[in-house]
């Protein structure tokens, strides 16, 4: 698998969420995703960036433009050093929330993407990886 581009952006404020959306849109366009796919990727990125900020007390996102044979992909990895998630299975359920959201962030972004992986350790932090391929 070839990495065409690889960058890291901070998620420290509500403005950074908007910035992550804009960057993700640019990269999805660069990878020639359809408008619907772009919208799905940007929406998932927005959900996870907000999780990183609100539940993880801020962190960063690594964004990678990938190529595997004829397939192009976009992978985003959100990392925080926040409190971690004690019960992952529960956190992945629709409607489960500890904040004041709707509890669709994790489960929803999983549905919007092709690949989804989450690692979390209580007291250490959380890493969520999502990718979409065309």
């Amino acid at each position: 698998m070839a990495t065409l581009r690889d960058e890291i952006y901070p998620i420290r404020s509500s403005d950074d969420i908007v910035k992550v959306r804009q960057i993700t849109r640019e990269w999805a366009l660069m990878q020639t995703f359809s408008l619907v796919d772009q919208t799905k990727i940007v929406t998932a990125a927005s959900e996870l960036a907000r999780n990183t900020l609100e539940h993880g007390r801020g962190g960063e996102v690594r964004i990678q433009a990938l190529q595997e044979g004829p397939r192009r992909g976009l992978r985003l990895t959100f990392t925080d050093q926040g409190p971690g998630i004690p019960d992952l299975a529960k956190a992945l359920q629709d409607g489960f929330t500890t904040g004041n959201g709707m509890g669709l962030g994790l489960s929803g972004s999983k549905r919007l993407m092709n690949d989804f992986d989450i690692q979390s350790e209580v007291g250490k932090g959380t890493t969520v990886m999502i990718a979409r391929w065309k």
Partner: peptide, 14 residues
């Protein structure tokens, strides 16, 4: 609402 937004919203679960 844009069609792509509608598709995404429903898939998101909203």
């Amino acid at each position: 609402m844009r069609p792509a937004v509608a598709i995404t919203l429903v898939e998101l679960g909203l």
